[in-house]
Structures are given as C-alpha cells and as structure tokens.
Amino acid sequence: MTATLKPRKRLRLSTVMDHIVLTLGALFMLVPMLMVLQLSTVPDAEIIQRGPSLHIGDQLDDNFVKAMFEASGFSGKNTGVSMLMNSFILGIGFAVGKIILGMMAAYAIVYFRLRFATLAFWAIFTTLLLPLEVRILPSYEIVQSLGMLNTYQGLIIPLIASATATFFFRQFFMSVPEELVEAARIDGAGPVKFFIDILVPLSRTMIAAMFIIMFVYGWNQYLWPTMITTEEDMYTLVRGIKQIIQVFEGTNLPEYGRGNLLALIAVIPPVLIVVFFQSWFVKGLTESDK
C-alpha cells in the first residue's frame, strides 16, 4: 500500500523503518527462546554465577540425556520421554477425537433434514460460549466420580466437549456447492458414500488445518491436566513445567540446564508444526473463527 507515487528517497526511508520495526518485533519474540536454548547448553554452576550470556556451552547432550531419561518427581516415572509421549497422546488424541466428532456432527446438521436439528444445533453451539475454565471444578468432580482421574480418557474427552471443530466443519460444509450432493445422488451415492467418497476427500485441507490447530491446543493444555493427572507417569510436558519451577525454588543447586531443555522440548513439536504448515494453519485459524 505504500506509495509508489512518492519520490524514491522517501520510499527508501519508510522501507528501512518498516524493516527496523519488524526486526525489533521479531527479536522481542525470539530472544527469550534463544535465551532458554543458551541456558540449556551451559553447566548449572555457570548459570548461577553469570546468568544467561552469549556463551554456547557443551552441556546440551548431557542435559538432553538428563531431561529425557531422568525423572524429576518422587515416583521416578515422569521422565522427559514419558512426558513427551503423554503430550503426543493428548495432542493427537484431542485433535483426532475432535475432528472425527466434529465432522460427524456437522455432517448430520448440514446434510440431513432433522426434526430436532435446531435443538441439536443450539445444544452444540452453546458450548462455544463457556470455556472449560469456568466449569473446571464440577468437571473435575464428574470425571472423578466416573473414575477417570489419571486416565487418558479423563484427560482428553472433557476437553473435546466443545463445538469449535463442529462449527468449523459446518461452515465449510455449507460452502460446498449443493450441486455436488445432487450430482452424487444422481450418481447413486447414498449419504455414507457421499461422506466418504466426496466430502471427506474434499475436506482434506480443512482437516489438516484443524488438526494443526487442535494438536497445538491439546498439547498446550495446562489447567485441566494439572487437575486430572496427579500421578507423575501421566504428566505431560506442559503440565510438568510447574514442577520444574517448584524444584528450582526448593533446591540449592537447581538443575537449570535440564529444566530449560525440558521447556524447550515442550515447545519444539507444536512450534515446528505451526511453522512448517504455516499456510494451512493460518487458513484454518482465520477462517474457523469467522
């Protein structure tokens, strides 16, 4: 939108300004994470002595081994490996569950003539209004009374009880040309065939976008896992962060390197997914919320 009409000299100045602002913004975002990376390469003693610096140490692999295979809790079960696995189970389970349920429900709402369609629609979409955080305690009690504390079901299913994916797929299905259903019907495809042969393949990009968003959302869950998982072998990486901090506080020689590396590991998978599948992710994010 800048002015190709302006004289050349002023254009250059404003472009330089643009780059300066953007670089500052990028640094604001990046520097804290680089610091975490640097801290996970140096010995703990050095951190306590001089804090973060530009010195890249040689402790990364040591810290990595400690982070992945040493437990931080009392039970000895919450190693980095087990937390990483739990994080993946939560992220993938949540994303897949949400997408499957969402697509099914959206398909029913958009493509069928249902007597109670309006009721179902509102019952489902009211859930968009109230985040889990406002009903966290009763949800906990219910999960407890169902005996699902410290289980993956207890961790994942209550998080799925909201309609974001349903809403998203509903929007998308509504934008699919009607003639496609009609053509399919004339071609002899029933509702199940149409769904599997036509609608699901058509939604591939949407499914990918949804998966990325939901995976990141599930992976990053904190409050709910904090309440539901009390046994250390059920901890996710994000849930384990608090424990790391508390250990920092409570000890004389905190294992800063190990802690920083765990924080880094907690960040890397979702960040990589978001960065590599950027265009899908942006599309999914900006279109789902409209």
Binding site: G25, A26, L30
Partner: peptide, 9 residues
C-alpha cells in the same frame, strides 16, 4: 518469526 510463539504453551 512473528507468529511461531502462538505455539508456545
């Protein structure tokens, strides 16, 4: 560079 922090918990 400006969007990746979205993925940080």
């Amino acid at each position: 560079l400006l969007m990746w922090v979205y993925a940080v918990a």
